[in-house]
């Protein structure tokens, strides 16, 4: 998978024996490892933008990666404001870009 470290000089193969799961990002099928943060799977798939802010519609992505900043929240399985850096990826998850607090782009809201 692109964006993954295939072999690390100190950590070896970091995702060995992990189960590959399929999930959806804005309707597109993607693969990731079960249990890794959703944000890690998105990063490995090259996704940069997680959400657009409510007032100024500015893009946000992974910023702290440890659940503090809330920049990486997305709509997951219909629920908005899910911290993707803290939420484990599961088979069949539906992950969507968050516009304000909705998964609908602003012009459709």
């Amino acid at each position: 998978m692109a964006g993954r470290i295939a072999q690390h000089p100190i950590l070896g193969c970091q995702n060995e024996n992990k189960k590959i799961v399929t999930f959806h990002y804005d309707g597109k099928e993607m693969k990731g490892f079960e249990g890794e943060p959703i944000a890690a799977a998105l990063k490995a798939n090259g996704v940069m933008v997680h959400r657009y802010t409510l007032k100024q519609h500015k893009p946000r992505g992974i910023f702290c990666a440890i659940g503090r900043c809330t920049d990486c929240v997305m709509v997951v399985d219909g629920e908005p404001n899910v911290r993707t850096c803290m939420t484990p990826l599961a088979e069949g998850m539906d992950v969507r870009t968050q516009y304000g607090v909705s998964d609908k782009p602003f012009d459709q809201q």
């Binding site: 990063k43 997680h50 992505g61 992974i62 910023f63 850096c85």
Partner: peptide, 23 residues
């Protein structure tokens, strides 16, 4: 500074050293 792609060094460390993903 708020653009996706700007991140804490700790975030980069988390991605690469815990999850094997290049920041």
């Amino acid at each position: 500074w708020t653009l996706p792609g700007v991140m804490g060094a700790g975030a980069a460390q988390t991605l690469m050293n815990l999850y094997g993903v290049k920041p």
